[in-house]
């Protein structure tokens, strides 16, 4: 069976456009709203979804996602609860890839094998674990392989040619290129600096390359979409949640409207870039 991730990237390649990947924190600001946002993402233009699962000590996140995780935890979100959300989403959408992103300790607590089976049942396609480098990943990779879930690897500006094969070992689905050194949402990615890195990783892996960590605006997303196979936006979306809460506005509407503007920029990036 072809994975949802492979199918989605193949379809987008046929359309000659990059994917827009939306990151949302499961349970932020509460379960019901998060589910509503999740269900609305594909229609708003998200080609893939990264579903953050909250951790108390997210050491690679900037303040926006730290706060989103705190809101979700305060509302009682659990790892089981995240899978329940995913399963509900899957009832209405069997094609949009769902990638969970977070930290290792909640999975250690659940147990890798049991978690991987439950995640597969919930319709999870991939997993990004920020604090699990390849050197520590084999036990998790074994469990995910058995459940047909992709372990998405991170490559970064500090990944040199010598290290790249280590990073790419046992990876599938796509490779996530962290475009800046830093925490999420803090620095801006430079499309021209990203271009050679994406080409290098694509050549070494034979996989699509998604770029994230430094994209906040439609302009930036469009620029990245010209050089990468996918543009990921996270902090700017969870910031919309925070802002809507602060202003007492409709959280779902605010987030989805931001997703629409970002997705539109990604979808038109390559045609817009062509000479008239």
């Amino acid at each position: 069976m072809k994975s949802r991730i492979d199918a989605r990237f193949a379809a987008l390649k046929a359309e000659d456009r990059a994917a827009f990947v939306a990151y949302v924190m499961a349970g932020d600001p509460n379960r019901a709203t998060a589910l509503e946002i999740l269900k609305g993402l594909p229609a708003a233009g998200a080609d893939l979804i990264e579903l953050g699962f909250p951790f108390s000590d997210p050491m690679a996140e900037g303040p926006p996602i730290q706060k989103a995780a705190q809101r979700a935890l305060k509302d009682g979100m659990t790892l089981k609860g995240v899978l329940d959300l995913a399963a509900e989403f899957r009832q209405g959408d069997d094609t949009t890839p769902l990638i969970m992103m977070g930290y290792l300790n909640p999975l250690v607590t659940w147990g890798f094998e049991a978690f991987a089976q439950a995640a597969a049942q919930a319709g999870i396609d991939g997993l990004i674990i920020v604090d699990c480098p390849p050197e520590e990943a084999d036990p998790l990779a074994d469990a995910l392989d058995a459940a047909d879930i992709s372990l998405i690897r991170l490559a970064t500006p500090t990944t040199d040619d010598k290290r790249l094969p280590v990073v790419l070992r046992r990876t599938s689905g796509f490779v996530y290129y962290v475009s800046v050194t830093g925490v999420t949402g803090a620095k801006e990615a430079d499309a021209e600096a990203v271009r050679p890195a994406v080409a290098r990783i694509r050549a070494a892996s034979g996989l699509p390359v998604a770029v994230g960590f430094g994209i906040r605006t439609p302009e930036r997303a469009g620029a990245i979409a010209q050089v990468a196979d996918a543009a990921v936006v996270g902090s700017a979306l969870v910031d919309e949640v925070a802002e809507a809460l602060e202003r007492n506005e409709d959280v779902t509407a605010r987030v989805l409207s931001k997703v629409e503007s970002l997705a539109k920029a990604v979808r038109s990036a390559r045609t817009a870039a062509l000479p008239a």
Binding site: V130, P133, E135, L154, T158, T159, D160, V167
Partner: peptide, 8 residues
């Protein structure tokens, strides 16, 4: 158990 950026 660190972020990939820190591994090197």
């Amino acid at each position: 158990y660190v972020a990939e950026t820190l591994m090197p």
